[in-house]
Computed example of a mutant assay.
Amino acid sequence: MHELEEAARDVVDSWESGDLAGAVTQLGRLLNNQDLNRAECADAIARAREIHANDQCVIDPLPLVAPAEDGTYVAAWLWIPNP
């Protein structure tokens, strides 16, 4: 599970009991990091769209990104037709 999804689930799980403020703070930190990563990886996002985006592969306007040592992972939606 992606860390953003995990943080969002922590917020939901902490709604009535638990450390809601801490869970929301953690989610906010991860969202801010994702914004910074997108800004730093703008060239990689553009390249991903040029190389891969088509009717079968869609990249959101603000995709999740994960910078790595030798490149960047850019989240995409792949179309899989029903059998």
Rank of each mutant, 00 (worst) to 15 (best):
M1K: 06
M1C: 04
H2G: 09
E3S: 14
L4N: 07
L4D: 07
L4F: 09
L4R: 09
L4G: 08
L4Q: 08
E5R: 09
E5M: 08
E5Y: 12
E5V: 14
A7S: 02
A7T: 00
R9A: 07
R9L: 12
R9F: 13
R9K: 15
D10V: 01
D13Y: 07
D13E: 14
W15T: 09
E16Q: 15
E16G: 15
E16N: 15
D19V: 03
D19H: 02
L20G: 00
A21W: 08
A21K: 12
A21E: 10
A21F: 14
A21V: 11
G22D: 01
A23T: 01
A23I: 00
A23M: 00
V24A: 07
V24W: 05
T25Q: 03
T25K: 03
L27I: 01
L27N: 00
L27K: 01
L27D: 00
G28K: 05
G28A: 12
R29E: 09
R29Y: 13
R29K: 14
L30H: 01
L30A: 02
L30W: 03
L30V: 01
L31K: 10
L31T: 09
Q34E: 12
D35Q: 14
D35L: 13
L36T: 11
L36A: 09
L36V: 11
L36N: 10
N37A: 14
N37E: 08
N37R: 14
R38Y: 01
A39S: 08
A39I: 04
A39W: 05
E40C: 07
C41L: 04
A42F: 12
D43W: 11
D43E: 15
I45S: 05
I45A: 05
A46L: 15
A46M: 08
A46D: 09
R47C: 06
A48G: 01
A48R: 00
A48L: 03
R49F: 07
H52P: 02
A53D: 03
A53H: 03
N54A: 02
C57Y: 05
V58F: 13
V58K: 15
I59S: 03
I59R: 06
I59K: 06
I59G: 05
I59Q: 05
I59A: 06
I59D: 07
D60I: 06
D60V: 08
D60Q: 13
L62R: 11
P63E: 07
P63S: 11
L64R: 14
V65D: 04
V65I: 07
A66H: 13
A66T: 11
A66L: 13
A66C: 10
E69G: 11
E69N: 13
D70W: 11
D70F: 12
D70T: 13
G71E: 12
G71Q: 12
Y73S: 06
Y73W: 08
Y73M: 08
V74N: 03
V74M: 00
V74D: 01
V74H: 04
A75E: 08
A75T: 05
A76M: 04
W77K: 10
W77V: 04
W77R: 12
L78P: 05
W79E: 07
I80M: 14
I80K: 14
N82K: 14
